[in-house]
Design a protein around this nucleic acid. Structure first.
Length: 568
RNA sequence: GCCUUGGUAGUGUAGUGGCCUAUCAUGAAGCCCUGUCGAGGCUUCGACCCGGGUUCAAAUCCCGGCCAGGGCGCCA
């Protein structure tokens, strides 16, 4: 190894190095003392090499996690250790220097589960090969992505971290300006506006591995700062972007995990909701939703008669009362009034079976029922029936252990509704963001039928996770102004908040579109973990605090004073 | 803001009203051992989140708080 005091890392020495004099450095992973010989396992991020030291020469103060530099001769072991890559050899130590001592570690890397303790000592947590390897994986994904972008003419262009606050959507992190007292920057929620403007500049193809910040509540898959593989392309259709994205993911998975991905199915939003009850379907298993509204109308079950929609899931499995109660809790959480069920052995039994008498043949045929199945019904409005059964589908996946975490099934979901109605604020708002283009057939009159409007926008889903969103952008400033006005921005507000963007579009914009891919989620799934904190170097806890450096923290009054700010 | 689960040596745990001056493992300290590698053997050390209540008796039940996890809302 070059540029270092050592001659080799702790994962390099093999039989061919026997008799060489080497110098290794690292942490003492373990110590085994015998009558006249001491063994140390020396660890660095690459691996472990055993050191053998004559007891008479050994400084018995050396303990676990001490950092040492050892010089010696490589010798072959009489009894090799097959569990370690360097197990054929060991280093017979001639000189040993302690670089630094270590106290007993406050966390045990094999067993500690307390997340806050792990975060407080994140730097020790990362000494574990299994922790560090997730960051190595992240590095490889970024590198593979950068390669693919570069190969396809994308420019890596940096956009500012101090930007204008545009309080649509997520809450901004704000940064007070000292020079301009009383004014604030925001930290970017994404490079969205900048990359669009770069298309107007003629950058043609842009990408950035960009940090994005949002001051919203956290989840296992949500951090206040996350990283996106962000890109934008000129003169493209949705299909071009999806084709590119699919090839990008295939390249990354081949390069990093040596896996060949299947082609990505492309569902419309409508189809995804109808079949899977989710706009981010997990395609690793079946249990698709079935539509039984018209059959249900014929029963005497009043709940079925009065509902807009009745949908169901059929499972070839019988469940206990307790399990069904759990399933009921799931659908209720997503707005269903209850979960109707019936089991089918050779006839319908249990649950609501007594109401199914007059439709039993029709139902058996429609659902292609096999013996010993359970049918779960949700009746309600279409959206509730679909989403609650979609969530039940995920619950069944986990209960019945239907999937493997190293199986990767991607898909695109496209043609999302462009607007959704906000009941609390009594106004239409963009489902995604206000810069996405309506599909061509809606451009002329979207104001008149907002509920029907489909956008030229699409998501990438992987195994039930939303990984990325993209769209064709509005490149015509007149259309952009109409959209802004429709969602409740007066022309004056539009100019105050987005005038710089609208103005830029007055000078000849290419048609363009792009995506933002959630790097943390991608790496987490590739690492087969469900907690994105494991793939973030220094993550925050649930309260958006960092237990290691204790941020956020109070600041000196002097600092506030300089900024012209006062705390309430 | 709301719902929910949990908090016992440094770490991971057992204990659900009296058998608890609290189990086991790991760890740490010391000693023994020519070849271990998840070393082994012996000895020692170390804990019921905080406050209040019920009770003859509380790790255990109740109330309040703190801390942590998961979720809902929120996240264009």
């Amino acid at each position: 190894m070059k540029y270092t005091q050592r001659t080799h890392t702790c994962n390099e020495l093999r039989k061919q190095h026997v008799k060489q004099t080497v110098c290794l450095a690292g942490w003492v992973q373990g110590k085994r003392e015998h009558g006249s010989v001491v063994f140390l396992d020396l660890r660095d991020r690459y691996g472990i090499t055993q050191l053998a030291i004559d007891k008479s020469k050994f400084d018995s103060n050396i303990k676990k996690e001490y950092v040492i530099i050892a010089k010696g001769v490589v010798v072959e072991r009489s009894q090799p250790n097959k569990k370690v890559d360097t197990g054929d050899v060991e280093v017979k130590v001639e000189a040993l220097e302690v670089v630094n001592e270590s106290e007993v570690l406050p966390i045990n890397n094999e067993t500690t589960e307390d997340p806050n303790l792990r975060l407080k000592y994140r730097y020790l947590d990362l000494r574990r090969t299994s922790s560090m390897s997730k960051l190595v994986l992240r590095h490889q994904v970024k590198k593979a992505a950068a390669e693919f972008f570069d190969k396809n003419n994308f420019l890596d262009l940096e956009t500012p971290m101090l930007v204008k606050s545009t309080p649509e959507g997520a809450r901004d992190y704000l940064v007070p300006s000292r020079v301009n007292k009383g004014k604030f920057y925001a930290l970017p929620q994404s490079p969205q506006l900048y990359k669009q403007i770069l298309m107007i500049s003629g950058a043609d193809r842009y990408y950035q591995i960009a940090r994005c910040l949002r001051d919203e509540d956290l989840r296992a898959d949500r951090q206040p700062e996350h990283t996106q593989l962000d890109f934008e392309m000129s003169f493209v259709t949705s299909k071009d972007i999806m084709d590119f994205t699919e090839d990008l993911f295939k390249h990354i998975f081949k390069k990093v995990l040596n896996k060949d991905l299947d082609d990505f199915p492309r569902f419309t939003y409508e189809e995804a909701m109808t079949r899977f009850g989710s706009d981010k379907p997990d395609l690793r298993f079946g249990l698709e939703l079935s539509e039984v509204t018209s059959i249900a109308k014929k029963t005497d079950f009043s709940i079925f008669n009065s509902a807009e929609s009745v949908k169901c899931i059929v499972v070839e499995e019988l469940f206990s009362r307790k399990q069904i109660d759990e399933f009921t809790d799931v659908v209720k959480l997503y707005g269903a009034k209850g979960l109707a069920y019936a089991t089918y052995t050779s006839e319908f039994e249990g649950g609501i079976s007594k109401f199914l008498g007059n439709v039993s043949d029709e139902l058996k045929k429609e659902l292609k029922l096999k013996k010993n199945s359970t049918i779960f019904f949700v009746a309600g409005c279409k959206k509730v029936a679909e989403t609650s059964l979609g969530q039940l589908r995920i619950k069944l996946r986990d209960t019945l252990e239907l999937v493997k975490s190293d199986d990767f099934k991607f898909c695109f979901v496209k043609d999302f509704p462009l607007f959704s109605y906000n009941e609390t604020e009594k106004r239409w708002e963009p489902e995604h963001h206000m810069f996405s283009m309506p599909k061509p057939e809606f451009v002329d009159d979207f104001e008149k039928r907002p509920g029907e409007v489909k956008g030229d926008l699409f998501d990438v889903a992987l195994n039930g996770w939303e990984l990325a969103s993209g769209s064709i952008r509005v490149s015509n400033p007149k259309v952009q102004r109409r959209i802004m006005e429709f969602i409740g921005l007066s022309p004056k507000e539009a100019d105050e908040k987005f005038g710089f963007l609208l103005n830029a579009y007055n000078y000849g914009a290419p048609s363009h579109g792009g995506m933002g891919l959630g790097l943390d989620r991608i790496v987490a799934l590739m690492a087969e973990t469900f907690d994105i904190r494991e793939v973030i170097t220094f993550p925050k806890n649930k309260n958006a605090e960092c237990p290691m450096d204790d941020s956020p923290s109070k600041i000196d009054l002097k600092q506030l004073d300089e900024l012209g700010l006062k705390l309430k």
